[in-house]
C-alpha cells in the first residue's frame, strides 16, 4: 500500500530535483516503510540505549554508593559486617548494615523454599497431566497473579498473614516468615511459567522412550522429565529469587523493619530495600545517612549481579 502511494505521487511532483531527493536521497532512506537503513538505525538506537542505561545506572550507583566510604570515611568492613544501625544517634552514630543484608538474603532464600516446590508442581500439572485444560485455565490464572500489584500482596499480607502468624506462633506477627510468605506467593507465577516452558521444551522422544520400557507416568515425570529440565528449572527459581530480592513495598508492609538481627523466623527483620525506601525521603542529599543508603543500594545491585552471573552460568551449562 505504501509503495503504491509514493509511486502515484512522484510523477505529479513539479520540482524534479526534489522528487529525486525524495526517491533516492536521504529523506527517502528514512521515510520509506521498507527502508533497510531506517530499520537498522531504529534497532541500533534501541540496543545502544539499553546498554547505556545499564552502564549509566551502574556507574551512578557506584559513584553515589562509594561516597560514604570515600567522603564520609565509613569503614567498608564495619559497614558490611556491623550489626548496629543507629545513624540518628547524636554521639557516636553507627552504620552496620549486616542485619539488612542478612534479612534480604533470608527473605529471598525462604521465599524460594516456599515457592519452588509449589511452582514446579504447578508447572508439571499444566504441562504433563492436563495439557489442554492446564493451558486453557491455569495459564490465564498465572498471568493474573503476575499482574497483581505488589502493594496488594502487601495489604493481604498485613491483614491476613500477619494476624495469622501472631495468632498461632506468637510474637507480633511482623516477621521474616510473613515477608517470605508474601514474596513467595509473589514469585510463584514467575517461577511456574518459566518452569512450565522448560518442561515443555523437553523433547517428547524422551517421554516415549520412557513409556516404551514400561515406566508409569509418575516414574516418567520424576526420573526423566525433571532431570532433563533440571538446570532450566533452577534458572526459573533463581530468576524468581532475584525478583524476591529486589521487592521492597510488599516486604516493608509485613516484615516489621526492625534493625536488630533476627534470631528466629518469627522475629521482625529488615531488608536492604525496606530500609532504603523508609529512610530515603527523610534524609537530605549529601548527608551521611543518605550516602549510607546509596551504599545499601550498591550492595543490592552487586548481589543482583551475582544472581545474573549464576543464571548465565546455569544456562551455559545447559547448552553444553
Amino acid at each position: 500500500m505504501g509503495i503504491n502511494k509514493t509511486m502515484a505521487g512522484a510523477p505529479s511532483n513539479k520540482d524534479p530535483k526534489l522528487s529525486l531527493l525524495k526517491e533516492k536521497g536521504l529523506i527517502k532512506r528514512f521515510t520509506d516503510h521498507y527502508s533497510e537503513s531506517r530499520g537498522r538505525l531504529i534497532i541500533y538506537i534501541s540496543a545502544s540505549l539499553m546498554i547505556i542505561a545499564v552502564v549509566a545506572i551502574t556507574l551512578f550507583l557506584t559513584v553515589q554508593g562509594l561516597r560514604s566510604f570515600v567522603i564520609d570515611r565509613l569503614n567498608v568492613w564495619s559497614f558490611v559486617t556491623g550489626t548496629e544501625w543507629y545513624p540518628d544517634r547524636e554521639n557516636n552514630p553507627s552504620f552496620g548494615a549486616f542485619p539488612f543484608i542478612f534479612g534480604s538474603i533470608a527473605v529471598t532464600l525462604l521465599s524460594a523454599v516456599i515457592a519452588a516446590p509449589v511452582a514446579v508442581g504447578c508447572a508439571i500439572f499444566m504441562t504433563e497431566l492436563t495439557k489442554k485444560w492446564g493451558q486453557r485455565v491455569l495459564q490465564p490464572v498465572i498471568e493474573i497473579l503476575v499482574g497483581i500489584p505488589s502493594v496488594v500482596y502487601g495489604l493481604i499480607g498485613l491483614s491476613v498473614i500477619v494476624p495469622f502468624i501472631k495468632q498461632y506462633f506468637g510474637g507480633s506477627g511482623f516477621s521474616l516468615l510473613a515477608g517470605s510468605l508474601v514474596v513467595g506467593i509473589m514469585i510463584l507465577p514467575t517461577v511456574a511459567s518459566i518452569a512450565a516452558d522448560s518442561i515443555r521444551s523437553v523433547p517428547d522422544t524422551l517421554r516415549e522412550a520412557s513409556y516404551a520400557i514400561g515406566a508409569t507416568k509418575w516414574q516418567t515425570i520424576w526420573r526423566v522429565v525433571i532431570p532433563a529440565a533440571g538446570s532450566s528449572l533452577i534458572t526459573a527459581i533463581v530468576l524468581g529469587m532475584s525478583r524476591a530480592f529486589g521487592e521492597a513495598l510488599a516486604v516493608q508492609m509485613v516484615v516489621g523493619n526492625a534493625r536488630g538481627l533476627p534470631t528466629s523466623i518469627f522475629d521482625p527483620a529488615a531488608t536492604l530495600t525496606t530500609i532504603i525506601t523508609l529512610s530515603m525521603g527523610n534524609s537530605t542529599y549529601g548527608s551521611v545517612l543518605n550516602d549510607a543508603l546509596w551504599s545499601l543500594g550498591l550492595i543490592l545491585l552487586m548481589i543482583s549481579y551475582i544472581f545474573i552471573v549464576i543464571i548465565r552460568f546455569l544456562s551455559k551449562r545447559r547448552k553444553a
Partner: peptide, 8 residues
C-alpha cells in the same frame, strides 16, 4: 524510620 520528623 531514621530521620523522620515525628521520630526526631
Amino acid at each position: 524510620p531514621d530521620g523522620s520528623g515525628t521520630r526526631a
